[in-house]
């Protein structure tokens, strides 16, 4: 039986705590395990991928998706959802290839403004108690509209420095991997280990308790949204650095990819249960799944379907792990 009543008869105290703990650890390990399995499959099928160049090629586009996933995760950890992430990143990309390239000052101002808009959204959603899904749905129209006004037809040029930046080739380990590791670790220490992170996550778990303990939920939400906006900007910049030009729809699919990444990484939609490391791993998994599909020459018709199938498969694994867990009443 599923459903709301998940009462399992009382187990002796020690074993119950241990069972819960074991299930939690397994769940935390799942994103890493699925990524390793995926990588191993790819390397077996295409040994050439196991090289600096191969990894670089496969993972290049992973960085903007990882950044977008982190942004989405920040929003999800305060029990909201951002359905405008993809259009926002597209908008940033359009700003980068137009304003930022021609009038750098204006460009930076616009990007700072974007972060400001996100902060405002956080304030609006919190103070009027609005459903984030609907507000960000409205925002997605606004970002796309803005992008079309800025860049009516595909084109533009990313600033040279940006292109150079994302093409740095550090020795031994490709840039994409370094960025992902640094991003995951930094966010892990910030959100999971620091005292600030505890308060931010607590606001997702039990907002009332956090407010009673004397923290301002408004400030927490504004901070989370502003940070999400910041990571969205970074994602957009990294993306155009790679693609060098942009269009208004360049990153629309990032909305769904970022949500899927957070979930694949072990995050849950409510209750402030998120994992930054998991989110980064989830994003990598999604990207590599795409590569795997092209390696095994799946007809392009079925590629998107196969991606869905992989998502379902990983989630099925998680369901199996969850079944091990013994929850107290």
């Amino acid at each position: 039986m599923n459903a709301p009543l998940n009462s399992v008869a009382r187990a002796p105290v020690a074993t119950r705590n241990n069972a819960a703990r074991r299930a939690r650890m397994l769940r935390a390990a799942l994103p890493a395990v699925s990524l390793v399995v995926l990588l191993a499959t790819i390397f077996i099928m295409q040994p050439r991928a196991m090289s600096y160049m191969g990894l670089n090629l496969m993972l290049n586009l992973a960085v903007p998706i990882a950044l977008a996933t982190i942004a989405q995760m920040l929003i999800i950890s305060v029990n909201d959802l951002d359905l405008s992430m993809g259009s926002f990143i597209s908008f940033v990309a359009c700003v980068a290839v137009t304003l930022l390239d021609q009038h750098p000052f204006l460009g930076w101002l616009a990007l700072a403004g974007c972060v400001g808009v996100y902060a405002l959204l956080g304030a609006l959603i919190h103070s009027r108690n609005l459903p984030s899904i609907v507000v960000t749905l409205g925002m997605s129209f606004i970002w796309v509209g803005g992008a079309i006004l800025l860049l009516p037809s595909p084109g533009g040029t990313a600033p040279q420095w940006l292109q150079a930046l994302v093409r740095i080739k550090p020795p031994l380990i490709p840039l994409a991997i370094i960025v992902c590791i640094v991003l995951g670790l930094a966010m892990h220490f910030f959100l999971m280990r620091s005292t600030v992170g505890v308060v931010l996550r607590g606001a997702g778990g039990n907002p009332l308790a956090i407010a009673k303990a004397g923290w301002s939920l408004l400030r927490i939400k504004v901070a989370m949204y502003a940070m999400a906006g910041g990571f969205g900007v970074l994602s957009g910049l990294f993306l155009v650095g790679l693609t060098t030009s942009a269009d208004a729809n360049v990153a629309l699919r990032y909305t769904l990819l970022s949500i899927a990444g957070v979930i694949l990484g072990g995050g849950e939609f409510v209750g402030g249960r998120v994992s930054p490391m998991g989110a980064v791993l989830g994003a990598l998994t999604l990207v590599l799944a795409g590569s795997l599909l092209s390696f095994i020459r799946i007809s392009p018709d079925w590629q998107i379907g196969a991606q869905g199938a992989i998502l379902i498969f990983v989630l099925a694994l998680r369901a199996a792990v969850n079944r091990l867990e013994v929850r107290p009443l």
């Binding site: 108690n129 409205g138 997605s140 509209g145 006004l149």
Partner: peptide, 25 residues
């Protein structure tokens, strides 16, 4: 572009007005 922006703004305005009556989420 303008059409999209206005559509978005109106959706947000509506939800803001609607939720003034009743807490949604």
């Amino acid at each position: 572009g303008v059409r999209l922006i206005l559509t978005g703004l109106i959706i947000i305005a509506v939800i803001t007005a609607v939720s003034g009556r009743k807490n949604a989420r």
